[in-house]
């Protein structure tokens, strides 16, 4: 069995890596996106300073002079740990406890320095607490989305289209007339695409990280495991979509039906926080959502695999469902001879 699986795996890898155009595009497209976003969002477009306030703002010293300044946004936090994390990641410029007459500033933040001077002008006796922490740029937030989107297209179209093409031109029919079993063929397709996607995505991530120095708080191994689980899930979805059809047009349409909602609703480009409830619920049925949320939690918040277990379980359930349905529906040949 392993011999047959390995033969198909090797053949599929040869097929992909020798297709220079496909390989080139798979490498260049995500790099172009990352570089593009790095330049587009390299400037700080903020016009406001954002200051965190511990406890409810309305109950805090409303008559504090700092609160009367224009162009400053005040955000209240109930939990100090959350507020400190935001400060560490430069999401707020200063954190102030008006009742305790204490403030925290991130020493590596330029905006933090200005906000501190504004506070001290009105409250020179507040106690200063300094912390360190690297800024999270939009690029750091969006990079899992860009890579995830590229992986999604590679998995769905790379598997779905290829299998439909095999079926349409009778490659599958020829393989069917051998002792090769569907499970051996399908497993080889999954593993081949997994190998390709993970190799390319890891390479792109390492290369871009070397250039842009991404904000990575969590474990890279955890990040890799999440990417691996997400990729298997997306490949399984591609297999399911291509399980029966021999029409490239129909399959293309189905793949678009799957990929566009994923691109819009999975939080590739923007966070779904604040979006309508039903959109957020719908997003939970999409594998890419779980992959991106888990990856961002590990990368930006330093979460462990255990802390993102709900996403991991969702990915595993989706993978099993897609694979089982795909195997049951799988057909070697179409109607054409």
């Amino acid at each position: 069995m392993f011999k047959r699986f390995l033969a198909v795996l090797i053949a599929r890898n040869y097929e992909f890596f020798r297709d220079r155009a496909a390989l080139g595009w798979n490498l260049i497209f995500p790099v172009l996106l990352v570089v593009g976003f790095a330049f587009i969002f390299s400037g700080d477009g903020k016009t406001l300073y954002k200051i965190g306030v511990l406890s409810d703002i309305s109950q805090t010293s409303n008559n504090h002079k700092l609160m009367e300044l224009k162009h400053i946004e005040f955000v209240s936090y109930d939990e100090k740990s959350i507020a400190m994390n935001k400060l560490r990641q430069h999401k707020i410029d200063l954190l102030v406890d008006f009742n305790g007459e204490t403030y925290w500033v991130n020493q590596s933040s330029n905006s933090g320095y200005i906000a501190e001077q504004l506070l001290l002008a009105s409250s020179p006796n507040f106690q200063r607490m300094a912390i360190e922490g690297k800024e999270i740029r939009y690029l750091d937030w969006v990079v899992p989305g860009i890579l995830g989107m590229n992986m999604m297209f590679s998995c769905l179209f790379g598997v779905g289209y290829v299998i439909v093409r095999y079926r349409k031109n009778s490659v599958l029919k020829r393989l069917h007339a051998t002792p090769l079993r569907p499970i051996e063929f399908l497993t080889a397709q999954v593993c081949s695409r997994l190998l390709i996607v993970m190799t390319l995505s890891t390479g792109i991530f390492i290369g871009c990280n070397w250039i842009f120095d991404f904000y990575i708080l969590g474990s890279l191994i955890d990040l890799f495991i999440i990417a691996l689980l997400g990729t298997v899930s997306l490949i399984s979805l591609g297999l399911l979509i291509a399980a029966r059809s021999e029409s490239e047009e129909f399959t293309g349409g189905m793949l678009n039906v799957a990929s566009w909602p994923m691109m819009m609703l999975s939080g590739v480009w923007f966070s779904l926080e604040g979006s309508p409830e039903f959109i957020q619920t719908l997003a939970q049925f999409i594998p890419l959502t779980h992959m991106l949320e888990a990856a961002r939690a590990v990368m930006l918040d330093g979460a462990s695999l255990w802390q993102v277990k709900s996403h991991i379980i969702a990915l595993l359930i989706m993978t099993a469902t897609f694979l089982m349905s795909g195997s049951l529906l799988f057909r070697w040949q179409g109607q054409a001879r």
Binding site: A11, R12, Y14, E15, R18, D19, Y166, N169, S170, V171, K173, R174, A177, R337
Partner: peptide
Amino acid sequence: ELGIQFQHTALQDHL
């Protein structure tokens, strides 16, 4: 135990 040559068939590309 069978050998089969179909009327219309294709093989995997780039091999």
